[in-house]
Simulated scan of single mutants.
Amino acid sequence: MKANGINYDSSVSLQTIEKDLATKKSSFSSDLQIKIEQLQDADYVYLSDSGDVYSSKRGYLGKADKIEENNISDTSSSLQNSTITPLSQSNPTVSEIFGGTTGAFERRQLGSSGFNGIISNVTLPTISNVTVNEQPWVYYGFENSVGALEGGYAYQTGSGIWLPYIKNVASGYLYADSAYAKSSGTTVNNFKFYIQLASGQTYYTAYLVEVGATNTVVRFASTPWTSISDLSVKRVTSIGQNNFNGSDILTKSMNQKWDSVQVSKYNSGGIYTSWSAFIEYSEWKNNMWYGTIDCTSSYVHRSNGYVSLYL
Rank of each mutant, 00 (worst) to 15 (best):
T123F: 00
L124N: 04
L124K: 03
L124Q: 01
P125T: 05
T126V: 13
I127R: 08
T131R: 01
T131C: 01
T131W: 04
N133W: 03
N133A: 15
E134L: 02
E134N: 01
E134P: 00
Q135P: 05
Y140V: 01
G141R: 02
G141Q: 08
N144I: 04
S145I: 09
V146A: 13
G147R: 05
G147W: 06
G147E: 04
A148F: 08
E150S: 09
E150M: 10
E150L: 11
G151F: 03
G151S: 08
G152T: 05
G152R: 00
Y153Q: 07
Y155I: 01
Y155S: 04
Q156Y: 14
T157P: 07
S159V: 11
G160A: 09
G160W: 06
G160H: 12
G160T: 08
I161Q: 12
I161E: 09
W162L: 10
P164K: 10
Y165G: 02
Y165L: 04
K167L: 11
K167E: 11
K167N: 13
K167F: 15
V169S: 15
V169W: 10
A170S: 15
S171N: 15
G172Y: 02
Y173N: 14
L174Q: 15
Y175T: 09
A176G: 14
D177T: 10
D177G: 10
S178E: 10
S178N: 14
A179C: 03
Y180G: 01
A181I: 05
K182M: 11
G185H: 05
T186R: 02
T186D: 13
T186N: 12
T187V: 11
T187Y: 07
V188F: 01
V188D: 03
V188H: 01
V188R: 00
N189W: 06
N190G: 13
F193R: 04
Y194E: 11
Y194H: 15
Y194V: 03
Y194F: 14
I195E: 14
I195S: 09
Q196S: 08
Q196T: 01
L197K: 15
A198E: 15
S199P: 00
S199G: 03
S199Y: 06
Q201D: 13
Y203E: 05
Y203A: 12
Y204N: 08
Y207K: 13
Y207I: 08
Y207G: 03
L208G: 07
V209P: 02
V211D: 11
V211A: 12
G212F: 07
G212A: 09
G212Y: 05
T214D: 12
T214H: 06
T214C: 04
T214V: 11
T216W: 03
R219G: 02
F220T: 12
F220V: 00
A221V: 02
S222F: 04
S222T: 14
T223P: 07
P224Y: 03
P224C: 00
W225G: 02
S227Q: 09
S227T: 15
S229G: 07
D230Q: 07
D230T: 12
